[in-house]
Design a protein around this nucleic acid. Structure first.
Lengths: 204, 204
DNA sequence: TCGTAACTTTACCAAATGGTAAAAATCTTG
DNA sequence: CAAGATTTTTACCATTTGGTAAAGTTACGA
């Protein structure tokens, strides 16, 4: 961004990655304002001005994270195949979302933080990238319903409920850990429950 | 807290309420660290030192809000009647949660912020207050299932999914507003969908 | 291996922020 | 109404924080 389009060196690629990794965890749990450059620097073993050497500002780090996040986060939705078996396609999507919740809770919380706070940095991105994809997938699901392959319901609210339930396991982990202290089987129990639930809802 | 247990004057009650109201909105959307005393003071037409006159610190305001929130937030869960008609009891609970999501989105977001960030100020409260209530209600639901009144499933995950879906409408409002711009029928559509969904899941 | 570009570190700064001191204003009550 | 208590305002302060300047160090291609 500051250097006019020269290809990044090995060190540059490496260090930017280190910064992103440290910042992701901190932004996810303390929010943007709740995270300081010093904390990020500490977490990745660098000095504060060094961060600014790689990113123009604290906000630039945040934006970079959100942009990267958006692509990875939406790819499972895009993977839904209109020509597949409807129920299995949706259940596969749900399984992937549960897996992401388990493997990438930081990303989930970063996203949650951004949206809860009114999406100050992501609204345009939501309009331009998420909205079209969302509408497309709603269309696919609507067609499946009209063909009688799955039960009829409002496709948008169906997707909302999938997001809500799957991301809840990452975003509200602190609460769940208190209420369901049985550490081991928690993830499996969640997977089984969620699959059962949506199978029941979607079966015509 | 600072004054040793004298009964609060009219002005004191009034102004504390004004402060809480302003702080609720700000903490809910910007988080604790993202909100400044000046912002709160501005929002309730007072001066910064005046806030400190009524609350010992910024954190004291936050804690007061969380404590108040906890009671109001959990009351619907406690209202579930073990001797009522199981399906209707749970659906009533869900309806109340949806209503709260619509009427008190700030409270929902304040709570979400706190939990997403690892519940730094609420963990003890969750253990001591929420956990026992949660366990009790899980017990009631488990009994209903054993009696064949509703479908069998993991009661805890059922409650999680109810929380996830209902609170999603308040917490992710910014995203929903982008994806479902039809303003008017949104709330009604959500209510209908959620009721249909859980009715289907719970029917044996 | 030498020179230059890329990178790191130290020392710093201005603004923002949580909070204090104390004077000024207002309210309450005998 | 007068006196004391309560509430509000003004002026400050120490720390934190995002960011800069510039000197020092390292990597790397010719």
């Amino acid at each position: 961004m500051s250097t006019p389009a020269r290809k990044p060196s090995r060190i540059q690629t490496e260090n930017r990655q280190r910064i992103r990794d440290a910042a992701l965890g901190l932004f996810a749990t303390h929010g943007f304002r709740g995270t300081t450059l010093d904390q990020i620097a500490d977490a990745c073993g660098m000095h504060k001005p060094n961060l600014i050497y790689y990113y123009d500002s604290k906000e630039a780090i945040h934006i970079d994270l959100l942009n990267t996040l958006m692509e990875e986060w939406l790819s499972p939705l895009d993977a839904m195949n209109p020509d597949g078996e409807p129920l299995e396609e949706i259940l596969d999507y749900i399984r992937r979302k549960m897996e992401m919740s388990r493997l990438y809770p930081r990303e989930s919380r970063l996203f949650a933080n951004e949206i809860v706070q009114g999406a100050p940095r992501m609204l345009p991105h939501l309009e331009s990238t998420l909205k079209p994809l969302f509408d497309k997938q709603c269309g696919i699901i609507a067609k499946w319903m009209k063909d009688g392959k799955i039960a009829e319901m409002h496709p948008a609210h169906l997707i909302f409920s999938i997001w809500a339930v799957t991301q809840h396991y990452a975003d509200f982990e602190a609460q769940i850990a208190v209420l369901l202290p049985g550490d081991d089987k928690r993830a499996r129990g969640a997977d089984q429950f969620v699959e059962m639930m949506f199978r029941k809802v979607l079966t015509p």
